[in-house]
């Protein structure tokens, strides 16, 4: 298989969108938090919590959409911890976020191990199936790429539209962006800086958790330790790359997914066989770093990012 064949195959484009899906959730969630002025390094642990909680709920019989809801609630819970520590208490967003990542990861692992003490191989659930829409799913190329994805991929695309609409077209979005740029102005209008920031962090964290849930309920059918594997951190890098814009965030996640799908296929070619497999495995992380370096100076940071705000102090 040569490179052109890879790029023209529908399976490559379908895989790109599939790989991008958890990142779309992650990037949107991180974007929402950061737009309000709060960096959420809890993301990696919130991915784990969403993956575990969603899977466990389905395993216990909650149904797939019940699992999605449980994952979102778990994400919102850990997001609320981060929000309380960083917004009204104004503590270090870096340290609180890392603390939430450690807390969410260890409690998820502990709960999984306690709920399933004696399993040698992880038990499986019946995950989301590929959509089967009459006519559309059978279309050549477009069918497999877009209409044979799972419902969670479509949920992710819907969330892009929703977050875009809220940020760019609603008055809530105006307030949210203002609270991340100039919280004093929001306070002067009589709106609650704390309320807006806490709300954004909780909602953003729920989105991140859906990225984790996609892994255990759509991409795979079981929960593994270490399965999140840096996807949260990659999302944080992609937000900077996307300059905090939902549309660009989608583009960044898709580019990333396409690159990852491409490198997997490249390994099977004659060219790819010359390079050790680990080089390909490293590529996504190195690519994220390079993307970060390219945009770092130009990035349009929310001006109040990382800066706590206290009522009555100017």
């Amino acid at each position: 298989m040569d490179i052109l064949q890879i790029l023209l195959s529908d399976s490559f484009w379908a895989a790109s969108l599939r790989i991008a899906t958890p990142l779309i959730f992650g990037v949107l969630g991180a974007l929402l938090c950061e737009k309000s002025g709060v960096l959420n390094l809890g993301i990696e642990g919130i991915f784990v919590a969403g993956a575990m909680a969603g899977w466990l709920a389905v395993w216990a019989g909650a149904g797939l959409w019940g699992g999605v809801l449980v994952a979102a609630l778990a994400g919102g819970f850990f997001g609320l911890i981060h929000a309380i520590l960083t917004v009204p208490l104004g503590l270090s967003q870096h340290v609180s976020g890392l603390g939430v990542t450690l807390f969410a990861t260890s409690s998820s692992y502990f709960i999984y191990r306690t709920a399933l003490p004696n399993v040698s191989s992880p038990p499986r659930i019946e995950p989301f199936r590929a959509l089967d829409i009459p006519v559309l799913s059978d279309l050549p190329f477009v069918g497999p790429v877009l209409f044979q994805q799972t419902a969670m991929t479509w949920l992710a695309l819907g969330m892009v539209a929703l977050v875009w609409y809220v940020l760019e077209r609603s008055s809530l979005g105006v307030a949210l962006k203002a609270v991340g740029d100039n919280p004093d102005s929001v306070d002067a209008q009589g709106l609650s800086v704390y309320g807006l920031r806490i709300g954004a962090v909780v909602a953003g964290s729920a989105l991140m958790a859906l990225g984790g849930a996609f892994l255990t309920m759509s991409a795979f059918d079981a929960f593994f330790f270490g399965m999140v594997n840096g996807r949260g951190w990659i999302s944080i890098a992609l937000v900077i790359f996307a300059s905090w814009r939902p549309g660009k965030a989608l583009l960044g996640a898709l580019l990333f997914g396409a690159f990852d799908a491409f490198q997997v296929r490249l390994q099977t070619t004659d060219v790819g066989a010359l390079v050790p497999g680990q080089i390909f495995l490293m590529a996504p992380y190195i690519l994220s770093i390079i993307a970060l370096v390219i945009v770092a100076r130009k990035a349009d940071y929310p001006r109040a990012l990382l800066t706590p705000w206290f009522k009555g102090q100017r």
């Binding site: 390094l41 870096h94 944080i236 900077i240 770093i289 970060l292």
Partner: peptide, 11 residues
């Protein structure tokens, strides 16, 4: 380059 060290060290 001004690249955030949190993200680069984690990656």
């Amino acid at each position: 380059f001004g690249a955030d060290e949190v993200v680069t060290t984690l990656l």
